[in-house]
Design a protein around this nucleic acid. Structure first.
Length: 275
DNA sequence: CGGCATGTTGCGCA
DNA sequence: TTGCGCAACATGCC
């Protein structure tokens, strides 16, 4: 279930287990997930090396080894990492494992991914997928002026634009949908038609959504995934604010739920477009 | 059975 | 050159 807060959660789990630990076993035989890394290269690059740091940008996690080699992990649609005992049985849909030892204590990190849209790859330095990411809302913070400048460069629907990983790192369909609901902005609004006030509202809406999702992730109480959202997946249900039935449209090939009243297209205060 | 899904890429066509 | 729509990827759930 990976969007930014989920990836952050996984990143913290990996950091807690891996930083300062030495890898004693590394396996992944799935060439689809590894592309373009090979199973042999995966094992050879990792085994017997110590982990220096674990970072996250957007939906990517980066594990840096003592020799500067990097392991990049993207969770795709159904990827996830768990931390188990070394002798734990293989999980359903387990695609890779990293066994580590630190201070004499051994743990095993297992990568699970039923649909196998995720990635695991080895590189000697940072890859374009990583360096090309825009600012990360959580680790870099959102600067409304910077975001406004980026949004002004495109006529795309704003929901499309904020899901562009080179504009903002880590925003997926759920956070975009929820963030725009909180901001009361119509997801179809051309991004170059947003006022600076609109952009500030979007920043607050995204921050609120990310913060809430992360809190759910870090909290101990179990929740039903469904109940977390105000509009996502709630077409036909009454808007929590105004009771108007939630509608959905397709933007950029992705289902986009919104309240047609709270998020009504703002007319008559468009920024003047360049001629 | 069909439809849909949290993500990304690649292709064909303006 | 740029941008957009859409299919594809592989699997599970309703």
């Amino acid at each position: 279930m990976p969007e930014l807060p989920d990836v952050e959660f996984v990143k913290r789990r990996l950091a807690r287990a891996l930083v300062g630990a030495t890898i004693t076993r590394a396996e992944c035989s799935d060439r689809r997930i590894l592309r373009p890394t090979t199973p042999n290269a995966f094992r050879r690059a990792l085994i017997h090396h110590a982990v220096r740091e674990v970072n996250r940008r957007g939906k990517w996690v980066r594990v840096v080894l003592d020799d500067e080699t990097r392991l990049f992990s993207h969770l795709g649609m159904t990827g996830w990492w768990i931390d188990v005992k070394v002798d734990a049985p293989q999980e359903t849909a387990e695609r890779a494992r990293l066994d580590v030892v630190r201070s004499g204590r051994a743990r095993s990190l297992r990568y699970l991914d039923s649909r196998r849209f995720g990635r695991l790859l080895i590189a000697k330095r940072d890859i374009a997928d990583w360096t090309g990411l825009g600012p990360d809302p959580l680790s870099d913070g959102l600067d409304p002026a910077v975001l406004a400048a980026a949004l002004a460069r495109s006529r795309r629907p704003v929901k499309d634009a904020i899901m562009d990983q080179s504009i903002l790192a880590g925003i997926g369909n759920i956070i975009a949908t929820e963030g725009l609901f909180h901001a009361r902005i119509d997801p179809r609004t051309p991004s170059d038609a947003l006022s600076s006030t609109d952009v500030e509202k979007i920043v607050r809406g995204l921050d609120k959504t990310i913060g809430k999702q992360l809190a759910v992730r870090l909290g101990s109480k179990r929740d039903d995934w469904h109940e977390r959202f105000a509009v996502y997946g709630r077409s036909g249900e009454p808007c929590s604010r105004c009771k108007t039935p939630i509608e959905h449209i397709v933007i950029g090939g992705r289902t986009s739920a919104f309240c047609p009243k709270c998020q009504a297209a703002q007319r008559g205060r468009r920024r003047t477009s360049p001629t």
